[in-house]
Amino acid sequence: MIVAGRRTELLDRITTEHPGIETLVLDVTDPASIAHAHKTVTSTYPEMNVLVNNAGIMLAENLLDAGSLPIAEDTVTTNLLGTIRMANAFLPHLVAKDNAAVVNVGSGLEFVPLPATPTYNATKAAIHSFSESLRVQLTETSVQVIEVVPPSVRTTLMGQQDSEQAMPLEDFLSEVMTLLGTQPDAGEILVENVKFLRHAEAEGTYGKVLSMLSGH
């Protein structure tokens, strides 16, 4: 397994605490960094057959404040453009494998938005649409496209690592791994905690859920 990220100190800690895991410095907002990562991975780890697009930022925005525009631009560059660039870079390598996968990490908020984070929601909705199109285009290849759709999880996103309303990270990861094992052909991986968002429109609860996320 190769873990990539921008924070070298965190990558060093992962290497120390988890022997056998390789790390790589990668900034998905920088095309040169992606090109370097692609060259390194495909030459050093030619057996690599799964790409997980997990990079993302989530910040609150006041759309009445012109100063919020840089937040929106950074969010689009990281969450959406980063995923598209990574897929574009690695797909030629993956389609040459007998069995491969692209795993894109979306969010339950792509189905019902959290109004405090409008651009984050929009990028995740775009990731869902991109994943759907990518899956169709890769139908005749050996590459499976999987979208993992998290609910609110106890991570540092929006400072919710201690939130009682968020799902414990360990529980989320455990359920995801179980679903991947028991539903190997699934296009979407949905833990129970996210289904009220995923199916809100179909179940006629969209307005109620949106109101709840709005704090009303």
Rank of each mutant, 00 (worst) to 15 (best):
G159T: 08
L190P: 01
G67T: 06
A200T: 14
L91T: 05
L109G: 00
E47A: 12
G108Q: 12
S129C: 05
G207M: 07
I71M: 03
K208W: 04
E192Q: 15
D185P: 00
L197P: 08
N49M: 09
F130D: 02
I127D: 08
A200Q: 09
I14P: 00
V209S: 04
A116I: 11
V143E: 07
S174E: 11
H199V: 02
A100D: 07
V136Y: 10
G56F: 13
N88R: 15
A37M: 05
A126G: 04
S142H: 11
V28R: 06
T123G: 00
N49T: 11
S129D: 04
L26G: 05
E9L: 02
P19K: 15
R13C: 02
G82A: 09
V102I: 15
V136C: 02
N49G: 10
R7L: 06
I84T: 05
S33P: 07
N54M: 09
N53E: 06
D30I: 01
G187R: 15
V3H: 05
P150D: 06
T182H: 05
G215L: 07
V136S: 06
M167I: 02
Y206C: 03
Q160A: 12
I14V: 14
D185R: 14
A37T: 05
D171Y: 08
T139E: 14
G187F: 14
K195A: 06
R198S: 00
V145H: 03
S163E: 13
V105G: 01
L24G: 02
V143I: 09
V52H: 13
A87Y: 00
N49S: 13
A122H: 14
V149S: 02
N54W: 09
D74W: 05
L10D: 03
P168A: 09
T40K: 10
T205H: 07
E175K: 08
I189E: 11
M212W: 05
E188C: 00
N79G: 04
A4Y: 12
P113H: 08
A60F: 03
V194F: 08
T141G: 04
E201C: 03
S107N: 01
S68V: 13
T139G: 11
A200G: 04
P92K: 11
I21E: 07
L94E: 10
